[in-house]
Each structure stands twice: as structure tokens, then as C-alpha cells.
Design a protein around this nucleic acid. Structure first.
Length: 203
DNA sequence: AATCAGGTCAACCGCAAAGAA
DNA sequence: GTTCTTTGCGGTTGACCTGAT
């Protein structure tokens, strides 16, 4: 049988529509067969990628929030370049998107943040113990247990690191509704505020 | 206005693992 | 147990965009 020339490069709108339709009918499997059946001059692999990274329902596109950013940094530190694993913790985001975001935004930022963290840690051990307490609360309040492996409680170090990382993210919104500016940890040029500690947190 | 450099992101490639025959 | 096919993953590429000169 004559090998048909496969299209490459950017997808056209009508190709997207056709692919979405055929996936709705056939389901997300047998991509080679699906690609042939669809009449698209695309490889199964290409169809699969397009579907997973762009057409799949409930995908978020663009603007990665500060919440997501800090989660990516933390998970990358925890798992390394296991993008699919990291992506599972960020609903609506694809491994490809996270990988790209890491390479273009965070890879450069992370060492700077870590350095700041190191400097901050060495001068703020009291804050660290307070953060350690908070780490436990953050973990227990996270209803999605896929978020952390069993028994994964963030160390004071990693949490202190995390808080410091956030200092570099102006639009940080993590639990913003619950947070207030905390005077104890706000210095003139490097604000390290996080949620004020309350008796409620200890329950 | 032209061009160059650096950044971004969608798509491709190659490999390995998983599953089917 | 072996071979073939399919799927999933991470790294890389290349087109496009934007800002600086």
C-alpha cells in the first residue's frame, strides 16, 4: 500500500474539529487507527499529542497562577523532571505546558529563590519552626491526597524555602482569602508574610 | 525601518514500558 | 517467552513574537 504523505506542523481549525469529533466517537485510544479513520493526514502520535495538549476538555490555557508556579517549583524539586507526574498535581495543565513553563520561566528563577532562601534561613531560625508547624496544617488541609505521597510532610527547610520562593512572586495569591499581611515577618525590602498563626490552626 | 537576540510554546523525535497476539 | 503494536514520557527543535539596538 502506498504510504500517504503525513502533514506536519501547526494544526488547522478544521483539523482540530475533525479530531475532536472522531475522539468523541471513538474514544481516546488506538491513535493510529483513529488517525486513519479520521481522514486526517496526521500520524496517530501527532493526533494524540494534539488532543492531550490542546483539545482535551477542561484544559486551562495560558496564565499560570502564582499558586501553580510555586507548586511546580516544589514538585520539580521533589520529583525532578517527571513532568507527567507533576502535571497530575495541576488539574487542567499538561506535562508539555509545565515543562515549557519550567524551562522558560522557572529554571532561571529557582536557583535565585533558593539562594534567597538559604540566606533567609540562616538568619531566621525562629520563623522556621513556626513555618514547620504551618507545614503540617497545610498538608492536612489538602483534601487531594494525590498531592503528596503517603507520609509526605514538608520539612521546615522546604517550607521555609517555599515561603521564600513566594517572596519573589509579586502576584502570589495562595490562600489569599485567608491571608493577611503579617507584621512580624514583613521587613522593609523583603516581605516574608504568610498567614498569621492562629489558635485555630493548632486544632 | 531593519535586524538581531532572546524568549516562548506547539509540535516532533526517540526511546522505553505496557499490552496484545 | 517472544514479537509486534500502542502508548506515554522527556528532551529537543523550529517557527513565531517581542524588545533592544
Amino acid at each position: 500500500m502506498q504510504e500517504e504523505e503525513l502533514r506536519r506542523g501547526q494544526w488547522l481549525e478544521e483539523e482540530d474539529e475533525r479530531l475532536a469529533m472522531i475522539v468523541a466517537i471513538s474514544g481516546e485510544r488506538r491513535w493510529d487507527a483513529l488517525a486513519k479513520d479520521s481522514g486526517l493526514k496526521r500520524s496517530g502520535k501527532s493526533c494524540r499529542l494534539r488532543w492531550l495538549n490542546y483539545l482535551r476538555p477542561n484544559l486551562k490555557h495560558g496564565h499560570i497562577t502564582a499558586d501553580e508556579e510555586r507548586l511546580i517549583i516544589r514538585l520539580q524539586k521533589q520529583f525532578g523532571n517527571k513532568w507527567s507526574k507533576i502535571a497530575k498535581q495541576l488539574p487542567g495543565r499538561t506535562d508539555n505546558e509545565i515543562k515549557n513553563y519550567w524551562r522558560s520561566h522557572l529554571r532561571k528563577k529557582a536557583p535565585v529563590y533558593e539562594q534567597e532562601c538559604f540566606e533567609d534561613n540562616t538568619s531566621n531560625s525562629e520563623q522556621k519552626s513556626s513555618i514547620s508547624n504551618r507545614a503540617t496544617v497545610l498538608n492536612s488541609s489538602n483534601s487531594d491526597d494525590s498531592f503528596s505521597e503517603k507520609g509526605d510532610c514538608y520539612s521546615a527547610d522546604s517550607l521555609a524555602n517555599e515561603v521564600t520562593l513566594l517572596d519573589g512572586i509579586p502576584s502570589w495569591s495562595y490562600e489569599q482569602s485567608r491571608m493577611e499581611h503579617h507584621m512580624y515577618f514583613c521587613s522593609s525590602n523583603l516581605c516574608s508574610c504568610y498567614a498569621p498563626w492562629t489558635s485555630e490552626d493548632n486544632n
